[in-house]
Write a protein that binds this DNA or RNA. Structure first.
Length: 461
RNA sequence: GGCGCGGUAGCAAAGCGGUUAUGCAGAGGCCUGCAAAGCCUUUUAGAGCGGUUCGACUCCGCUCCGCGCCUCCA
């Protein structure tokens, strides 16, 4: 039985889908005005892992991950760059696809873009207005009347009165309550035509929060199983989604928006949250110039998805060494598409770990025990190791290809092979001084030689 | 100020009320011409103070420290 930590309950709960065997899952994707950083990468890999595990468990999953392609930052950036919104967002969506593809993140079943769901957003806003939860302010913006939604705060554990005690509430004329948030922003003269839609409330564009309510409802229905996102979206974004979606269905309808809320932990740098505003972020593409993408994925999955994760080159190096051990156990094992034997003891422990709120660290520990068994007792379990790794999106490459990835410093394959031959000749002649000299030269280039039963092989060190 | 999360061995990181986490690093051994890899053995834990218990790293309380949210943010 799969158990998931539900933020709404602040506890692990048995996962029971609305419809047997089927799971609807929505995850807040990113706002595409810049390159993805490692924090985005973690969120993407975490929910990719969740999605994979649900499927491996036999569920028919509908996975929706949106793209926010309209918002203040996008507009500002496009104007700065003197390009259209579409050009800017198209560029960064392509970059995101490249980065995620490298990390082994599978495509969601649906990847809706906010700009394609404006009519659905308007419909929800209309319903909210009918239900007395939305009002148009003097400036033209349509706001959500937070005080009218009794359950406001149930996800984040905050009460409106406590929130109001917080100092940083900007005084926005037109809002009935400072905590009310915008559903529909009335158009501003200076903004490009591209971001203006007609609506019953005048020309304008949707607020940020309404996008996810509309897209999730359109693709998964009014109520669905799992909603995920980064911890920083818990408040106010997800709280507002609940207010919108449940408010539109009718506060008294008893209908629920989402059953299970999942939030992944942050990536940190020097014990501080990695973020754009702090300027301490590392983009995926810069990390991927230094580290193999699978090493990055392995690094992200080696800690629990809800724990904070510190990023540093040393930690990535550590992950590389660990993943190298797993691949070393697969040396000489052909890449095959063997499936998992779930009756096998290691697989049972792997499954138990994953079923306990996606315990990837322990699942990966089982992989190492499997590697040890292979090194000790032979290759029978190699297919099992590869197949279990595959459940996490790992260990699918040829072992040699992984071990030699990144090249051999300044040396090409032919030169390395020539050196290995030369060393072999020296060894045969029992000229060990010469043989050791050649090995040292290669090592200086980051190439490690290993004399095995089947001959000498090399890997990057 | 309000709400929440966490403090595990040299580093990273898990589970668990009583039995080896796991990876890297360290020590000894096997293997090797010597190494590397691998295998075997092994040293370093659970912030502090109380409480519950036959027994606590694991449950409860307090203290100290760190982090996050309360504003856009994965």
């Amino acid at each position: 039985m799969l158990r998931i930590y539900n933020t709404l309950a602040r506890d692990k709960q048995d996962f029971v889908p609305l419809r047997p065997g089927k799971v609807g899952m929505y995850v807040c994707g990113i706002t595409v005005y810049d390159y993805c950083h490692l924090g985005h990468g973690r969120m993407m890999v975490v929910f990719d892992m969740v999605q994979r595990w649900l499927r491996a468990s036999g569920f028919a999953v509908t996975y929706v991950r949106n793209i926010t392609d309209i918002d203040d930052k996008i507009i500002r950036r496009a104007v700065e760059n003197n390009e259209t919104i579409g050009e800017l967002t198209g560029r960064f969506i392509r970059a995101m696809d490249e980065d995620l593809d490298a990390l082994g993140v599978q495509k969601p079943d649906h990847e809706p873009r906010a700009t394609q769901y404006v009519p659905q957003m308007q419909a929800i806003i209309g319903a909210l207005q009918e239900n007395g939860l939305a009002y148009q302010a003097s400036g033209g913006d349509v706001n959500y009347a937070v005080r009218k939604f009794p359950a406001y705060g149930k996800l984040s554990g905050k009460s409106l009165d406590e929130l109001r005690a917080g100092e940083r509430v900007e005084v926005d004329t037109g809002k009935a309550d400072p905590l009310d948030f915008v559903l529909w922003k009335s158009a501003k003269e200076a903004e490009p035509e591209e971001v203006k839609w007609d609506s019953p409330w005048g020309r304008g564009r949707p607020g940020w929060h309404i996008e996810c309510s509309a897209m999730s409802c359109a693709l998964l229905g009014e109520t669905f199983d799992i909603h995920g996102g980064g911890q920083d979206l818990q408040f106010p974004h997800h709280e507002n989604e609940i207010a919108q979606s449940e408010g539109a269905m009718g506060v008294d309808s008893g209908k629920r928006f989402v059953n299970t809320w999942m939030h992944n932990g942050f990536v940190r740098v020097d014990d501080e949250k990695m973020s754009k505003s702090l300027g301490n972020f590392f983009t995926l593409r810069e990390i991927l110039t230094k580290f193999d993408a699978e090493v990055v994925r392995f690094f992200l999955l080696r800690s629990h998805y809800r724990s904070p994760l510190n990023h540093s080159d040393a930690h990535l190096e550590d992950a590389r060494g660990a993943l190298t051990r797993l691949y070393t156990a697969l040396k000489g094992v052909p890449v095959s598409t063997s499936s998992v034997d779930w009756e096998e003891p290691h697989a049972k422990r792997f499954k138990a770990a994953m079923d306990d709120d996606f315990g990837t660290p322990e699942a990966i520990a089982v992989l190492f025990e499997l590697a040890n068994k292979i090194n000790r007792a032979g290759r029978e379990k190699a297919g099992q190791l590869r197949a279990l790794g595959g459940v996490l999106g790992l260990l699918q490459r040829d072992a040699q290809a992984f071990l030699q990835a990144g090249g051999g410093g300044g040396m090409n394959e032919a030169r390395i092979q020539a050196s290995i031959e030369a060393r072999l000749a020296a060894r045969k002649a029992r000229d060990f001084a010469q043989a050791d000299r050649i090995r040292a030269e290669l090592l200086a280039q980051g190439i490690v030689l290993e004399d095995g039963a089947g001959g000498t092989t090399w890997r990057r060190g």
